[in-house]
């Protein structure tokens, strides 16, 4: 069902939805950019249309809405463990197709990898509905089309933001409020971007060999990458975390275990008790990430992990471009294959 709404009517609609949902969207955090006098766009709860920032790509992905940066897993009290309750008010997130597909990758890891379902992810995930932001132009660093993630169909609602009006397609009937029934109906199917400025060619999964791993390409990243971890924290699909135990009382009877985001580029990720560290060089970290995003995730789930949102390109202080890395890798693999 499609509806055409004026900005004012859309605000009324949002207001009505807010009775049932907490609504998250990309918002401009004024003065919160790392450089003086700059802003940052990240996901936050919104009240009205004006809060939604669509002109620029969000620096951080919507991942933190359904997978908090820090999350208490449980408290210890004497010999009891207790998981904390969460806010169970349903959530509606406005996301672009790439991010919606990216959340699908998080689902793979947290819900489908191994026998166990991740309790914490699952209970939040169940609360979430998606309003897909129609995205037909993308941004300079996007390569979603190459990653097959420009199109998403598993939305509960799709939204087109035009200058003068907002068109919505509601798939989930529970998102139809009185405000909509009074609005003009419209026939609306969201369009999807068909071509990005940036294109990548993923090397065929089976052609990536040990030789590819040993290639000097990775040495280049040892000299360039500073392992700051921004590519991990901005990525919609990076899902790794580290456990933290916190002592809340001196007798050690009360404690908290939580998890916090971690990542292959973040210091200490592969350090083991006793001092061994499996990927010391930053080029090895880059190789690990690259392979995870465009090679080995595919071997497990038959789909690539990277969705081509391009955030890692946007945020890298060393101007390392992941899309360039993929293309370089592809050239190397093709070269290697020719010489076989």
């Amino acid at each position: 069902m499609g509806y055409k709404l004026s900005p004012l009517a859309f605000d009324y609609y949002l207001k009505a939805l807010r009775n049932t949902y907490r609504i998250f969207a990309p918002v401009l955090q004024k003065g919160k950019g790392k450089f003086a006098g700059t802003d940052v766009i990240s996901y936050g709860e919104i009240n009205s249309l004006d809060d939604i920032m669509l002109d620029r790509k969000s620096y951080f992905s919507p991942k933190e809405v359904l997978y908090p940066i820090r999350e208490t897993l449980f408290y210890f009290l004497n010999d009891e463990t207790k998981a904390p309750a969460i806010n169970v008010k349903p959530i509606l997130i406005l996301v672009r197709p790439c991010d919606l597909n990216g959340i699908g990758k998080l689902d793979r890891v947290f819900l489908n990898n191994g026998q166990e379902v991740d309790f914490y992810y699952a209970r939040r995930r169940e609360l979430i509905k998606f309003a897909m932001i129609e995205c037909v132009e993308g941004f300079d660093t996007c390569f979603c089309v190459s990653m097959d993630s420009n199109v998403a169909n598993n939305y509960d609602m799709a939204v087109r933001f035009d200058e003068d009006n907002i068109t919505v397609k509601v798939v989930d009937k529970s998102l139809i409020t009185k405000d909509l029934t009074h609005a003009d109906t419209a026939i609306f199917e969201p369009a999807f971007i068909q071509e990005n400025k940036v294109k990548v060619t993923i090397p065929e999964v089976d052609l990536v060999t040990k030789k590819t791993f040993d290639h000097e390409l990775w040495e280049e990243y040892t000299s360039r990458c500073i392992a700051c971890g921004r590519c991990n924290t901005s990525c919609i699909t990076c899902s790794c975390y580290t456990m933290q135990d916190i002592k809340l009382s001196d007798d050690k009877k009360i404690g908290e275990r939580r998890r916090v985001w971690a990542g292959c580029h973040i210091d200490g990720f592969t350090n083991m008790a006793g001092g061994h560290n499996f990927r010391k060089k930053n080029g090895e970290k880059m190789r690990f990430k690259t392979m995870h995003k465009i090679n080995d995730f595919y071997k497990r789930f038959n789909e690539h992990m990277c969705v081509g949102c391009g955030r890692c390109d946007d945020v890298c202080p060393e101007y390392i471009s992941f899309s360039k890395c993929i293309n370089k890798l592809n050239a190397i693999v093709r070269e290697e294959t020719l010489h076989e």
Partner: peptide
């Protein structure tokens, strides 16, 4: 402000007043 520059996740940010 180095901590703000180095933080990969925006846990550090600038205060409102310079």
């Amino acid at each position: 402000g180095e901590c703000i520059l180095k933080c990969p996740i925006g846990a550090w940010s600038r205060g409102e007043t310079p």
